[in-house]
Structure formats: structure tokens, C-alpha cells
């Protein structure tokens, strides 16, 4: 910094340097808090809306939802799940009858974590829909896991037991087979693996079919806000 000092005839005092940086930091901090506070409601609302839309998309015929968590050995209804607590969403139809679960799952993909949501009917043990929530797969290749309608449609009636298997494109024969994507085998297999892992993780915790928690009164509206 000596060259800079030479350029400036009278070197400013250290106090002035410290004060300049402190004021700059203070103003910057206030600006950042301001923008954070003013955008937070929109961002939270966006996220909640995205989740609702995804739940209704992966569970056909569902128009209401509530968050369910596993506490003290059973599945309970919670209005607001705690942060980082594993959660599934119960989907209910117009009459409030239980239809199925929307299960969030995440795992490593080709480039970064893939987060997805799939609809699961416990009675039929079938996956009825899949939606990718977050992924950074290669554009044009790996992103076909959500851009390729044929691939997404593979998950509309899929048996999860014994497990879903990704097979070479065009060779799917059984109802637990998924046609992988040519050129994006890793991403396609990652999706299948995430669903299998999530299914196994929750299999023991979900209640027996027919004994799902009923739609709680205060949660009834959480899904109808459109």
C-alpha cells in the first residue's frame, strides 16, 4: 500500500480509514436487511405455492393436503414441521378422504443433489406421479428427468415392490420397470434410487393402509388456496 500512500499527499488518519469501512459496512448491512425483509414473504409464499402445486401434481384427484411427521413411534399431523425434520404430505380429496402420500426425497444426481416429490398410494403400493423439485443436471441431457414427458409419465403407475428398476430404454416389461433415458442413464437411475431409498426409509413408519390420520380441521384449507 506504500505506492498508494505516495499518490495521496496527506495520508488520512487510521481513524478515518476505520470509520469509512465501518460506515460502508453499516449502510450495506442495513440495505441487505431491508431487501431480505422485504422479499422474504414473497419467497416463502413462492416456496409454499410450489410445494402445494407439486403435491397436487403427483397425486391425481387430491385437493387438500397436510404435513405429517413421524414422532414417538407414530405418524402425527403437524401444522408446521420443524426444520430438517423428515416430513411427508398426506393428500385428501374434496370429501376429505385420504388418497395417498406425497413423499419428498433427495439424493446425489450426476452433478448435484436431486430433490424430488413422488405420489404414493399405500393401498396399491404404487407410485402415481413424480416431480423434480431441485436439480442441476446437465441441460439437454440430465434435465430430461423433468423435461422429457415420456420419462416423467413412467412414474404414473409404478410398483415400488420389491423395488423400482431402471432398464435400458424400450425394454421395460414389468410394472416396476422404468425406461432409462438414453444419454442420461446416471440421472435417470438417480431418480429411481432416490424413490427406492425414500420408500424403504418410510415403509416401517407409515401406518397400515386404512388407518391414515384424518384431515385435521385447521389444515383443511392449507391446500385450497388457489
Amino acid at each position: 500500500m506504500s505506492s498508494d500512500a505516495n499518490r495521496q499527499p496527506a495520508a488520512p488518519s487510521s481513524l478515518r480509514l476505520v470509520m469509512t469501512l465501518a460506515i460502508a459496512g453499516l449502510v450495506s448491512g442495513i440495505a441487505i436487511i431491508g431487501i431480505y425483509e422485504s422479499t422474504l414473504p414473497t419467497i416463502t409464499a413462492n416456496k409454499a405455492r410450489e410445494l402445494r402445486e407439486a403435491v397436487f401434481k403427483v397425486l391425481p384427484g387430491v385437493s387438500r393436503m397436510q404435513a405429517l411427521v413421524y414422532r414417538d413411534g407414530r405418524i402425527v399431523v403437524v401444522p408446521e414441521p420443524e426444520k430438517d425434520e423428515p416430513v411427508v404430505y398426506g393428500g385428501y380429496d374434496e370429501q376429505g378422504e385420504f388418497v395417498g402420500y406425497a413423499m419428498p426425497g433427495a439424493g446425489p444426481g450426476f452433478q448435484d443433489t436431486i430433490a424430488l416429490l413422488y405420489g404414493y398410494l399405500p393401498r396399491d403400493k404404487k407410485v402415481v406421479g413424480m416431480e423434480i423439485l431441485e436439480s442441476r443436471e446437465t441441460p439437454g441431457l440430465g434435465d430430461k428427468i423433468y423435461k422429457d414427458a415420456d420419462f416423467v409419465a413412467e412414474f404414473s403407475a409404478l410398483s415400488v415392490e420389491p423395488e423400482i428398476v431402471a432398464v435400458k430404454k424400450g425394454t421395460a416389461t414389468l410394472d416396476n420397470h422404468v425406461d432409462a433415458i438414453t444419454g442420461a442413464t446416471i440421472s435417470a437411475k438417480a431418480v429411481v434410487r432416490i424413490i427406492n431409498e425414500t420408500h424403504v426409509a418410510w415403509a416401517e413408519q407409515l401406518p397400515a393402509p386404512g388407518t391414515e390420520p384424518p384431515l385435521a380441521g385447521d389444515a383443511a384449507d392449507s391446500g385450497t388456496g388457489q
Binding site: 495521496q8 469509512t20 419467497i43
Partner: peptide
């Protein structure tokens, strides 16, 4: 002051970047 200009520039730039980040996210 010339001595702390780069730090000041970075503080200013970082503030604008954060604003852009949150605005795009919203």
C-alpha cells in the same frame, strides 16, 4: 480514502449483488 478503496468497492458491489440475488429469487 485511497487506502481502503478496494474494500469499499467490494462492500458496495456485494450489497448490490445481494439485492439482485433476493430480487431474482422473489
Amino acid at each position: 480514502p485511497k487506502q481502503v478503496r478496494i474494500s469499499c468497492f467490494i462492500i458496495i458491489i456485494a450489497t448490490f449483488v445481494t439485492i439482485a440475488d433476493y430480487t431474482l429469487l422473489a
